Simulated assay, not measured.
Amino acid sequence: MLRLEDVSVSYGRVAALSGVSLEVRPGELVSLIGANGAGKSTTLKTISGLLRPAAGRITWDGAPIAGLPPGEILRRGIAHCPEGRRVFPHLSVRENLVMGALLRRDSAGIREDLEAMYARFPRLRERAAQAAGTLSGGEQQMLAIARALMSRPRLVMFDEPSLGLAPNLVEQVFEIVQEVRRQGLMVLMVEQNALAALSLCDRAYLLETGRVVRAGTGAELLESSDVREAYLGGRAFAA
Rank of each mutant, 00 (worst) to 15 (best):
V173R: 02
R85Y: 13
S92R: 02
G109S: 07
L169E: 04
I47L: 06
A132W: 01
T134N: 11
A196G: 02
L155H: 06
D202H: 15
V187C: 04
E95N: 03
L169Y: 01
G37P: 04
V87F: 09
N96H: 04
I110H: 07
L103Y: 15
R52V: 14
Q192M: 08
P70R: 13
M186L: 11
S224D: 15
L206P: 02
R75N: 09
M99D: 00
N36M: 12
L149H: 12
L169V: 15
G56T: 09
L4F: 14
A101R: 06
R3P: 00
E95I: 02
S107V: 11
A16L: 03
E179A: 15
L68A: 13
L4S: 06
E179N: 10
Y118C: 10
P161H: 05
V213G: 05
T134L: 14
M99S: 10
R181D: 03
S162Y: 01
G67F: 13
S199R: 15
S162H: 01
S162Q: 03
L103A: 06
V180C: 04
A131K: 09
R203P: 00
R94Y: 01
I145P: 00
K40W: 12
P167Q: 00
A35L: 14
Q183W: 01
R105W: 00
L188A: 10
R104M: 05
V30M: 09
E171M: 02
G19W: 02
T134G: 05
A55D: 14
A66L: 11
P153D: 10
G210W: 04
E5S: 10
C81M: 14
T59R: 15
E179G: 10
V213P: 03
R86H: 14
A129C: 02
A63L: 14
L102W: 15
L222K: 03
V87N: 10
V212H: 04
A35E: 15
C81W: 09
